[in-house]
Design a binder for these strands. Sequence first.
DNA 1: ACCTGAACACCGTTCAAGT
DNA 2: ACCTGAACACCGTTCAAGT
Lengths: 214, 214
Amino acid sequence: VSQAEPVRLSREVIVDAFLRITDEEGADAGTLRRLGIELRADPTSIYRHFRDKQELVAAAADRLLSDAFEGFRPSGSWRADVRELCLRGRAVYMTHPGVLLGVATTPTALGTGLLLAEHMLGAIRAAGLEDAEAVLAFEALEDYVVGKAGIDAASDNEGWRQVHAALPAGTFPNLTATASSIYRDPEEAFLYGLDLMLDALEARLERRAEGRGI
Amino acid sequence: VSQAEPVRLSREVIVDAFLRITDEEGADAGTLRRLGIELRADPTSIYRHFRDKQELVAAAADRLLSDAFEGFRPSGSWRADVRELCLRGRAVYMTHPGVLLGVATTPTALGTGLLLAEHMLGAIRAAGLEDAEAVLAFEALEDYVVGKAGIDAASDNEGWRQVHAALPAGTFPNLTATASSIYRDPEEAFLYGLDLMLDALEARLERRAEGRGI
DNA sequence: ACCTGAACACCGTTCAAGT
DNA sequence: ACCTGAACACCGTTCAAGT
């Protein structure tokens, strides 16, 4: 692909460039001026295709979330489906935390990007929770996935271990005792917490099924 | 308190002003220029007391976390203690998400600010989990508390309900069906997820106690 | 219809100069 | 020893001007 001549601008071309830049150079590199260089156009030409930067970021997030959902097929087990969708969500948030976290809080009319959430909530409702409880379980799981990915993507775990190790053992016996083993495998910790939630959800559902006299 | 005359600068005075500003005017107001106005000093005079802004933010976070831990007394129940510490952590992260989230990822030599984490990890270890598992449970709970508070503090929940309500019901049956009830009570959703994790943790511990033939 | 480029109102930070 | 203030290298965004 020759980058020597200017690129005809469109929403798609701009989103492509934005994701390419944040992919290769990190979230901080996703500025309009950097985008202008990439597209061999004036930085402000982006405003002819997006109302503001937030709208561009939302379009990029929509694309990422759509791709993350693609190929998903329900397995027949609510638990396996919820777990699979959480893993897909985590994976995409880990690769582009900067792009996605801004959108997670600011309401934006996404397209197919919301299919991941739709099917996750669907699996929880199909499990047998009534709506009032299903939305609580969905919110807890969604925010755990999004929040932990955001933290994991940004955290300097090696640095935190050093901070813990340097603490006075008298007042911090637990942090110092575990300083060498903590924050070693965020992925494992994520799965541990996820399975904790799924275990409890399953136990509650079973308990109620028994309660109804099955 | 008269603000008419310049204030003698010190780390404490600067942190006071920083927290007062972010408290009353939001996280975005916490700039060095705004701080200069508040202290009736040049914005760059802060650099005589802190290496950079990050160090100031860390000092503010340390103070907030220390205050959040103050008065905690272990109850004798690991579950009650973990729950209480998570609630205190959530409360402080909700009031100053901007100040605290930056510190959560960047390792900083906090003082008493780490006591909250210390006692939470201690309660988990006291429950009977061996260290390898205790750190995983601690990480999952910590990141759930911090991550969900960060998201809740920044989210426009009313806006998201409207986005869900406007979705095509054919491809989004679950999001549209729950559009009026979702994201109504983030605090309740937080507690729901927290108790899910604690339930599962307790069940695992009980199962193992039985396995040892008690 | 689309793009350019100067300009504006912000950031954090550096550094020579003051006292 | 501490503070000032000009300056630097950045941001997102607006708007009159070009084609």
